[in-house]
Design a protein around this nucleic acid. Structure first.
Length: 156
DNA sequence: GCCAACGTTGGC
DNA sequence: GCCAACGTTGGC
């Protein structure tokens, strides 16, 4: 299957690219997605080796900080069954997991941070899902053209 | 901290 | 199966 590209949002205070680099296994799991559309992207469309734009939201300057890569097949998000987890979902059934996740591994920090502002200013990124007004999806597909344009803006 | 936008829930 | 109410996200 052809390589696909994604943008995955995280809050830098919650899980930064540095946190991902520090993972002992060399890759981290993308837990806590509780939105059906985002889940379906992971569960049904992602494959190992897909490119990931590591995006920071809800911070002083939102934007793409780094490149990462999908590093596993989808598997059930264990935090849905853990009452102590902030991602606990009492409606989830272990026999039929509701929420899924993939592993992600670091590839490269962008030499230049690509802010949301700069992305909006670049006509090459017109139509990119994340840039659409009111978009709140934490995982969105990225076209190869947009992927290349963001990498270029980031200095790669 | 505000508020627009949108997903989800629940009553009917 | 509609839709109003509610909760959450996320940019500013």
């Amino acid at each position: 299957m052809a390589k696909k590209y994604w943008l995955m949002k995280t809050e830098p205070d919650c899980y930064s690219y540095e946190d991902l680099e520090k993972e002992k296994r060399g890759q981290g799991h993308w837990e806590g997605v509780r939105n059906f559309q985002a889940r379906n992207f992971m569960k049904e469309q992602m494959s190992i080796g897909d490119g990931v734009l590591f995006y920071y939201s809800s911070c002083a300057e939102p934007g793409v900080a780094a490149i990462a890569e999908v590093a596993s097949e989808p598997y059930p998000d264990h935090t849905q069954f853990d009452p102590k987890s902030q991602y606990y979902d009492p409606t989830a059934n272990p026999d039929k997991p509701k929420w899924w996740m993939v592993d992600v591994k670091p590839v490269k920090k962008l030499p230049k941070y690509v802010s949301l502002k700069d992305m909006h200013a670049n006509p090459d990124l017109e139509g990119m899902v994340t840039l659409r007004k009111g978009n709140r999806l934490s995982i969105t597909p990225v076209s190869p053209e947009h992927w290349k344009a963001v990498r270029k803006m980031g200095g790669l």
